[in-house]
């Protein structure tokens, strides 16, 4: 049984064609379910609880990374989500709009691909990151410049402000083809990688405004695999992009929760 959570902005006429084609595909494949529209005042936690009680086993976010992040956090915070046999419900994403790192990671790059993924319904348990013991993220958390990293017995500081810290759970930089990183960025290994990158200057104006090729804008310089990392900053609160933007008080404690989330993955998944 499915429950579809549509973000409020998907009602905009700009996305009407994508939403209509999505409705058609879902009807054609016979995987219609409960539809819940996420307004600004909507109590998502209550809706997720209600769906779980009524026997929903697949929670589908229709929207972008922010939509999936909201649903993922509600799902993981729900009482009884973890049973003795593992997670009790799966998360899937149907991509509408920009910023689709989660959908890309699950192998649901386009609406037809995502619907096919839902139909096949292959599930995998993956690790999730947890920020300040409160906010969960699936792909990666990007921190602002001028932060340093604290590990169990050592600290890592950046020597200039050109660099940025990302804590990656999945292979968002698309580096599996690079032999140097073949063992890294696996969301099922119980570890994540603290990555320090340098932003490359745009070669031309086309690249400056390109929405795609996120990974090509950064050059990876340092990689520290770990399970628990403290991010230190001189600021009291910092803005962290962890699937969606979050304001967090410092120091930010980041820890991995192994095999915590069940996701529906397609053939082109990025694990």
């Amino acid at each position: 049984m499915f429950a579809y959570f549509l973000d409020d902005w998907t009602a905009h006429k700009r996305y009407s064609r994508e939403v209509d084609s999505l409705d058609l595909l879902l009807t054609q494949h016979g995987i219609i379910g409960r539809r819940i529209r996420l307004g600004r005042l909507h109590d998502l936690d209550a809706s997720v609880r209600d769906c779980a009680v009524s026997g929903v086993k697949t929670f589908v976010a229709i929207g972008n990374d922010a939509t999936a992040s909201k649903l993922l956090n509600s799902l993981l915070k729900m009482d009884g989500y973890q049973s003795d046999k593992g997670p009790t419900a799966a998360l899937a994403v149907l991509p509408i709009g920009d910023e689709q790192k989660i959908a890309a990671c699950l192998g649901s790059n386009t609406v037809p691909e995502a619907v096919q993924t839902l139909v096949e319904h292959r599930t995998e348990s993956i690790d999730v990151g947890k920020l300040n013991n409160r906010h969960y993220f699936m792909t990666m958390a990007t921190f602002p410049p001028k932060v340093s990293l604290g590990f169990l017995s050592y600290t890592v500081s950046l020597m200039d402000d050109e660099h940025q810290v990302h804590i990656c759970n999945t292979n968002v930089f698309n580096l599996k083809s690079d032999v140097r990183y073949q063992k890294s960025f696996n969301p099922q290994d119980g570890m994540f990688e603290a990555v320090i990158t340098r932003r490359l200057p745009a070669a031309d104006w086309k690249q400056l405004f390109a929405k795609e090729k996120f990974s090509s804008n950064f050059q990876i310089e340092s990689v520290f695999p770990h399970q628990r990392i403290t991010v230190l900053s001189r600021e009291k609160t910092i803005s962290v992009m962890a699937d969606a933007e979050k304001q967090l008080s410092t120091p930010v404690e980041v820890e991995v929760e192994p095999q915590k989330l069940l996701v529906v993955v397609g053939a082109k998944n990025n694990f």
Binding site: Y154, V156, L158, R180, K183
Partner: peptide
Amino acid sequence: EGENETIIGPSVKVDGDFI
């Protein structure tokens, strides 16, 4: 080269006991 798991890059300073 593919065997590297931890990379301490040129822009980074590590203080403490790195294990």
